[in-house]
């Protein structure tokens, strides 16, 4: 389905995440077709051995400056995919290549923990659905951004403060509130601080996990505007996870549809929304209000 191509910013091949050891029945019944009823699995759960197959054989490519959308219902494995790519969770199997790291030759799932941490701090930025995951709520907004700069090796308070102020200004956090902690910010502001933090080391790849969920409509629009503007200005590649097709339609050039830990459909966003092929995608698109 996806060809191995040179020049992709991010290449993921056969990424698998299992919670549990698996048994012969569920391990062999996998990946045989597009039928959700395949094998012994109940959705992504094996009733025989109790293993949860959170990600099954995920492959994807992301090009520099491209926004790739990932849609799917709750529990389909979207967030697990993001966490595996940000090394919050360890993938069970598979390969993950990043072009800026070793020219995209090394499987970064297999490099040392220190190297993974360096990749996480310099090449990746993550925005979590829940700001509590991505921010230290009792440290100031400036310090939250500085944390990522410190992690990447900066030891100069002056330059870090200047960079943090510049970023917070870019995401429209007023200057007078930069010294406050995110615990005193609204949800939308917290999300924008997370974006500023993710951008701090000018990463070529941003991972955005349900960044507008739980925000009211006008704030959603502001955050989405910001994301589009950043892509236009900085040319950052982004992986955008959402269960909201409106968000995907607005942001993503191409889209993957996930169900029960697998990619059931992929293609241009317009094509998927206008002419869905997979029964699940058809359901999803038709249930759009």
């Amino acid at each position: 389905m996806i060809q191995q191509q040179a020049g992709a910013l991010l290449k993921v091949r056969n990424l698998t995440k299992r919670f549990g050891d698996g048994c012969p029945q569920c391990l062999e019944g996998l990946g045989t077709g597009n039928d959700a009823e395949e094998g012994p699995l109940h959705h992504n759960y094996c009733p025989i051995c109790g293993t949860v197959h959170a990600l099954r054989d995920i492959s994807l490519d992301l090009w520099p400056g491209e926004i790739l959308g990932i849609v799917g219902e709750s529990g389909s494995g979207k967030s697990t995919l993001m966490r595996c790519l940000y090394f919050d969770q360890e993938a069970t199997e598979g390969e993950f290549f990043l072009d800026p790291f070793d020219g995209g030759k090394a499987n970064v799932l297999k490099v040392s923990a220190q190297a993974r941490r360096a990749i996480r701090h310099t090449l990746l930025g993550m925005v979590y659905q829940n700001p509590v995951m991505g921010l230290r709520m009792n440290y100031s907004a400036v310090a939250n951004i500085a944390e990522k700069l410190i992690a990447a090796g900066s030891r100069n308070v002056g330059t870090m403060t200047a960079r943090a102020s510049e970023l917070l200004d870019q995401v429209n956090i007023p200057l007078r509130r930069m010294g406050e902690s995110p615990s005193r910010f609204s949800g939308g502001m917290q999300q924008r601080v997370q974006i500023a933090k993710a951008l701090s080391n000018r990463p070529p790849l941003l991972l955005l996990d349900e960044i507008t969920t739980g925000l009211d409509l006008s704030v959603q629009a502001k955050v989405l505007d910001l994301v589009r503007q950043l892509q236009a200005d900085l040319g950052i590649g982004m992986l955008v996870v959402s269960h909201d097709l409106g968000v995907i339609r607005m942001l993503a050039d191409r889209t993957l549809v996930m169900l029960n830990g697998r990619v059931v459909e992929s293609g241009l966003t317009d094509q998927i929304l206008e002419d869905p092929q997979d029964p699940y995608t058809q359901d999803l698109v038709h249930s759009l209000l």
């Binding site: 941490r117 400036v142 030891r155 870090m160």
Partner: peptide, 16 residues
Amino acid sequence: EKEYSGAYLSLFEDIL
């Protein structure tokens, strides 16, 4: 993993 940004972060916040 010799990951000590947290120790520096406390000092940074003090300076702020």
